[in-house]
Structures are given as structure tokens and as C-alpha cells.
């Protein structure tokens, strides 16, 4: 439904054409629906700020109220975080909505700083950002650099050229001798590297890796035939297939034993605890499922917030 709205509102000139009266009214009504939904969203946010739990949290953590926190993102993941193509001065996506919801619950506003994927945690560690909400998987290794509050399970998709010419069916022996595009610092990188031994044992060449620093480059690598596959969050893969239905396809989704998490500096346990509490409220009030639906993240499974940390 939302995609319909986008399609029509992207061509307002058509709507004013007199020969298309019915379309005009349809667009007006659709825009009305969109406005109502946007209102609903802000009303939700207002409700959230007024909820007892959030009020109590704002009283408990007054240090965040009225502040502007910096959220480091790698805005190359439509659905999670990317520029709004219609108004490139702002970011949109599930992670942005989640950050705003957390902000309205805890009383802070947000500023977004775009960095390379591998620079997300260093930016947090150096204090240039207060939190990271950028579709980042909360692994034990990363928990050494930051504390994570999880909000979703991880499902990975395998992006391949149309028709899957290399017959890749997961992070397994089918990848021997193929080339995978990944972002520097992705959890999939060691998984692919670890295939070298089994492939050798099976008498096949090890898979090759090409490292980039954002999704767009990885998708381009598959489009250009430089890489045979790109394995990443299934929703990102779906968005790519949607953008290039003639050239790309999704081989399948694989489950990885990870969780998507919000990164917070280890030196700021108060923020971590406040986010855990606020996220719980956001999930309980049904806002998170609604947001995931809005962004088409149907294959993400919501999880109650858990802290992943490591000394």
C-alpha cells in the first residue's frame, strides 16, 4: 500500500492532468491516507512520550532529557537506513524510526552521522557518536568494543545474479571457487573465509572475498559480475532484488546465530539501561512490529531486548 502511495506521489504532474480525473482523486485520497498515517505515527510518538513508563524513565534518566544524541549510521541500507530519495536532506528507515521512538520516550533528539560500516564502532568508541543503530549484528567480538541491546533476530539472504548461475545455496561448499562481495567488518566475512578448509578438503578452490564499505558497492559488484554473491541481511537483499528484478535474485535465506543490536559506548551504562527499558516499552506498545511492517521487514523476528556485552 505504501509503495502505491510513493509511486503516485512521485509523479504529481500526472495528478493534475485533467484527462486523468479519477487518478487525481485517487492520489488525493491516497495522500490523505498517507497524511493520516503520518499523523498516526506522530500521535504514536506523542503517546509514547506520555506513557507512564516513558515518563518514569525520563524522571529516572534526566541526563538525556532535552539533549541531542549522535547516532552513527551506515546509510546504505534502504529499509533500515538510507536517504529519503524525495528529500535527501533526511534519513528514513526502520532504524531511524526506532531511534526517534527511543528519543521521544527518553526525551532526547537525534542527529545522524553517516560513516563507513567498519567505522561505526570506532566512531562510537572515540565519542564522536553516542549510539549506533545501523542494522549491525551484535556479535561477541563486537561486544568487546561496545555494549549492544538487541532488537531483532538475524536472517541472511543470499543475493546472486538472476537465475543463480553458480548455484550457490548458502554459506557452504556451494560457494567453493566463487567470489563473494562483503563489507569490511561484516560477520559474514569470517564465515566465508572459514570455508577455505572444507573446500580444500573437497578438492575445490577456496571462495574469494571482495571487501567494500557499503551495501551499494556490494550490490554493484554482483550487478557488474565481479562477484557471484552478496550475503547480508535478508531485507537488504530483498530491496536489491526489488530494485533490479531483471538482474538479481535471492537464492535463499539462511539463519545466522546473531541478533541485530543497538550499540552504546561501554562508558555509558546509564544510556544502555535506559534504552533497554525504553525498547521494552516500544515493543510492548506494538510500535516496533508496526514499524517493521511499514518498512517491509517482514522477515525480521522481534526479540525482547537483551544486553550483549564482553569485557
Amino acid at each position: 500500500m505504501l509503495s502505491t502511495i510513493e509511486r503516485f506521489s512521485a509523479h504529481p504532474s500526472q495528478a493534475t492532468s485533467p484527462s486523468r480525473g479519477w487518478r487525481h482523486w485517487m492520489v488525493v485520497s491516497l495522500l490523505g491516507v498517507a497524511a493520516w498515517m503520518a499523523h498516526l505515527g506522530s500521535a504514536q510518538a506523542a503517546d509514547l512520550a506520555d506513557s507512564k513508563v516513558c515518563q518514569a524513565l525520563q524522571a529516572k534518566y534526566p541526563q538525556f532529557k532535552g539533549k541531542t544524541l549522535v547516532d552513527a549510521i551506515n546509510p546504505h541500507t534502504p529499509g533500515y537506513e538510507a536517504l529519503d530519495p524525495k528529500d535527501p536532506n533526511r534519513y528514513i528507515g526502520f532504524d531511524i524510526d526506532l531511534a526517534e521512538a527511543l528519543g521521544s520516550c527518553l526525551g532526547f533528539s537525534l542527529k545522524y552521522t553517516p560513516v563507513a560500516f567498519a567505522a561505526l564502532l570506532p566512531t562510537l568508541q572515540s565519542g564522536q557518536a553516542d549510539l549506533v543503530i545501523s542494522d549491525i549484528y551484535a556479535t561477541k567480538e563486537r561486544a568487546k568494543a561496545a555494549d549492544f541491546i538487541t532488537y531483532s533476530k538475524v536472517f541472511d539472504g543470499v543475493l546472486v545474479a538472476k537465475g543463480n548461475p553458480k548455484k550457490i545455496n548458502g554459506i557452504n561448499l556451494s560457494m567453493c571457487g566463487t567470489t563473494a562481495a562483503e563489507n569490511t567488518g561484516f560477520v559474514e566475512v569470517p564465515l566465508v573465509q572459514n570455508l577455505a578448509e572444507p573446500c580444500k578438503a573437497a578438492g575445490k578452490p577456496a571462495p574469494q572475498l571482495q571487501l567494500y564499505d557499503n551495501n551499494a558497492s556490494c550490490i554493484q559488484a554482483v550487478l557488474a559480475g565481479r562477484a557471484d554473491t552478496y550475503i547480508n541481511d535478508v531485507n537488504t537483499v530483498d530491496q536489491a532484488v526489488k530494485a533490479y528484478p531483471d538482474k538479481l535474485s535471492k537464492a535463499l535465506a539462511v539463519t545466522l546465530p546473531y541478533h541485530i543490536g543497538i550499540g552504546v559506548s561501554k562508558s555509558n551504562p546509564a544510556l544502555r539501561d535506559a534504552i533497554v527499558a525504553a525498547l521494552g516499552e516500544i515493543q510492548k506498545s506494538g510500535i516496533q512490529p508496526a514499524m517493521m511492517k511499514k518498512w517491509g521487514l517482514d522477515q525480521g523476528a522481534i526479540e525482547p531486548p537483551t544486553i550483549i556485552t564482553d569485557k
Binding site: H76, N214, A243
Partner: peptide, 13 residues
């Protein structure tokens, strides 16, 4: 940076 971000969100590289 603006170009790469815009390309990522629109896929219009």
C-alpha cells in the same frame, strides 16, 4: 558522501 548515499537509497548509481 552525498552521492554515494543518494545512490544507495535510489539505486540509481
Amino acid at each position: 558522501l552525498r552521492s554515494t548515499q543518494l545512490a544507495s537509497s535510489t539505486f540509481d548509481f
